[in-house]
């Protein structure tokens, strides 16, 4: 019995030895010779195909085998021109093509042969198997498995990278009244994110303008608030909220050039009366809710598209 711990120690090569069949490893089709061929002809055949054993076949009947050892003996003893039928080993032991490689290895151990003719279930000769064939097959399969594992890893990595791009990023920052020095912090981060994602520059600028105007509006006009920017796979959602004092006439505030900004912000270049109109113009979805003495809520959506030239 194999415990879980032992099972884990089985290497992939061991698994393959059980999984793979003789037909996966054997050389095919078999290079064969006729019983009427001379040993010299068979020697040439071996040289041409770089093989060390040739089954001797007549029709579909396997008669015997001539190996490189037989050739050496024939050369030594001067009967290289004899016919195969006279010198071949008869009563050849074959191996079945559906045997596992581990069984084939055991057969090699048991008989000490360098090769086996391989026959199918109908006893037809279908190939020749050597120990080298087994090694080659295992190496090839290991390489294939390794490549598959690498490809799987790469695909998993790529898919994780894709998830990162699709992931929702939320930038949330409190915005303080009169904090002109901090204006644009959220907008700056948003620009970075959109640039990293290869978003179309025009879309990036529009979203950044909405975020910037949202920040400055809170700094200039409110008693303090918060800007939240959520970057989704298909849009940027910008929400600005403050704690008051609210906009008395929202329609008036949406008109270009109308501003209630004080002296200091105007000196700094704010208060052009274009903030809200700019936001609306740059948004694909724009909503504003306010009223005298109320909190102001501004909701904007900018739809994303990738830059056309992005690789």
């Amino acid at each position: 019995m194999v415990s879980a711990g032992d099972a884990r120690k089985i290497t992939i090569a061991q698994v393959l030895v059980y999984e793979l069949r003789v037909r996966d490893a054997m050389s095919k089709p078999p290079i064969t010779a006729l019983p009427s061929d001379s040993l010299r002809e068979i020697q040439k055949l071996m040289k041409r195909h770089k093989i060390s054993g040739v089954p001797i076949q007549l029709g579909t009947k396997l008669l015997g085998i001539v190996t490189i050892e037989d050739i050496i003996t024939a050369l030594d003893q001067g009967h290289i021109d004899d016919l195969a039928e006279k010198r071949m080993a008869q009563g050849v032991i074959t191996i079945r093509d559906h045997f596992s490689l581990v069984r084939a290895v055991a057969e090699f151990e048991r008989h000490g042969f360098g090769r086996f003719p391989v026959v199918d279930s109908a006893d037809r000769l279908v190939g020749v198997l050597t120990r080298g064939d087994i090694t080659n097959c295992l190496m090839h399969q290991l390489e294939k498995r390794a490549e598959e594992a690498i490809a799987f890893e790469a695909a998993a990595l790529a898919s994780r990278a894709g998830d990162d791009l699709a992931r929702r990023i939320v930038i949330r920052a409190p915005v303080r009244t009169g904090d002109y020095d901090s204006a644009g912090k959220v907008s700056q981060r948003l620009r970075q994110v959109l640039r990293e994602r290869g978003i179309d520059p025009d879309v990036r600028r529009r979203a950044a303008i909405v975020a910037y105007e949202a920040e400055t509006n809170i700094i200039i006009h409110s008693l303090g608030g918060e800007v939240t920017v959520a970057v989704d796979s298909d849009k940027v959602v910008i929400d600005a909220t403050d704690v008051g004092p609210g906009i008395e006439d929202v329609n008036q505030a949406m008109q270009e050039g109308w501003s209630t900004a004080g002296r200091l912000p105007r000196e700094l270049g704010f208060g052009a009366g274009m903030g809200l109109p700019n936001m609306k113009k740059c948004s694909d979805v724009f909503e504003i809710k306010s009223g005298n003495g109320q909190t102001t809520l501004v909701h904007s959506e900018v739809f994303l598209r990738k830059a056309a030239s992005t690789p």
Binding site: S187, R191, R205, G269
Partner: peptide, 12 residues
Amino acid sequence: HRNVVSVAATKD
């Protein structure tokens, strides 16, 4: 003011 840089960056 530093907001000039923010605006310039926002607008490329």
